[in-house]
């Protein structure tokens, strides 16, 4: 039991509350995929409900002079709107709801993860990968829809001599294709590592407290855990911001592929 409590990756376990059964495949194990309502799904739902409730209830009064909650909602709105406008231009504002949803979803999910015993949705690579691939697809599809084949100019930076262009274009293509990878790994790695480190220091406190007189030393990892908790709150907000800013930058490529 104590072994399990200290084990730092236990917190990432997916716990099924109920299942809807297997879909696809041929009935043997490993084929098809199972659809279940899990702790991950619960916290996704909580994230959705928290954001919606906050934004809708706080703006219910439509006050000309905002109250505290309405002011917070307006500040988040303007923060993201300014971010989109400054990175992707006025035309980028058509993606404002998309970027806003991404930012809020990641931010609230990250903050939920900071509550002890709560599950961190963004600590699973499949979640961050889904979001990153979604951004990637939006960029590619909108880029081709808006610019046609001239979207491919994105890979040909202007003002490069012809003998270097054969080197630059493959590099540009590779860097473009690896975007969803770095985009998703950055968020996932930050959340995963932060939570593991927190758990490790917390586990050290527990282990040292059980060591008799040496329990006094537990103050050291305890201090680290406190400091890291503060850092993790910063990281939670920062990673949501970084994810949203990069989304804006990528969308800007779709809107203005000629650099």
């Amino acid at each position: 039991m104590s072994e399990k409590a200290i084990e730092p990756i236990h917190q990432f376990n997916i716990v099924k509350y109920f299942t809807f059964g297997n879909f696809g495949g041929n009935g043997t194990e490993g084929s098809g995929f199972e659809i279940a309502f899990t702790n991950s799904a619960l916290f996704m739902l909580l994230t959705l409900l928290t954001i919606s409730a906050f934004l809708i209830l706080s703006t219910r009064g439509r006050g000309l002079v905002p109250g505290r909650m309405q002011l917070m909602a307006e500040m988040v709105y303007e923060f993201v709107a300014n971010m989109v406008r400054s990175s992707a231009g006025t035309e980028g504002m058509r993606f404002f709801p998309f970027v806003f949803s991404l930012f809020m979803f990641i931010l609230v999910a990250n903050f939920f993860g900071m509550v002890p015993y709560f599950f961190t949705v963004t600590s699973h690579i499949i979640v961050t990968a889904f979001l990153a691939v979604l951004v990637f697809l939006v960029v590619v599809i909108y880029g081709f829809m808006r610019n046609g084949l001239s979207f491919l100019k994105l890979f040909v930076p202007p003002g490069i001599p012809w003998f270097i262009i054969w080197l630059v274009v493959p590099i540009e293509i590779i860097s473009f294709l690896s975007r969803p990878l770095s985009h998703s790994l950055r968020l996932w790695g930050n959340m995963l590592a932060g939570h593991i480190v927190l758990k490790v220091f917390g586990g050290m406190v527990v282990a040292l407290l059980g060591a008799g007189a040496w329990g006094v030393v537990a103050i050291l990892p305890f201090g680290m855990a406190v400091a890291l908790t503060g850092l993790e709150f910063l990281v939670a907000a920062l990673q949501a911001f970084v994810f949203a800013v990069l989304t804006c930058v990528y969308l800007n490529d779709a809107i203005h592929p000629g650099h």
Partner: peptide, 10 residues
């Protein structure tokens, strides 16, 4: 299930 719920909630 994670993808499904993420798609639904997002």
């Amino acid at each position: 299930s994670q993808l499904l719920w993420l798609a639904i909630t997002f």
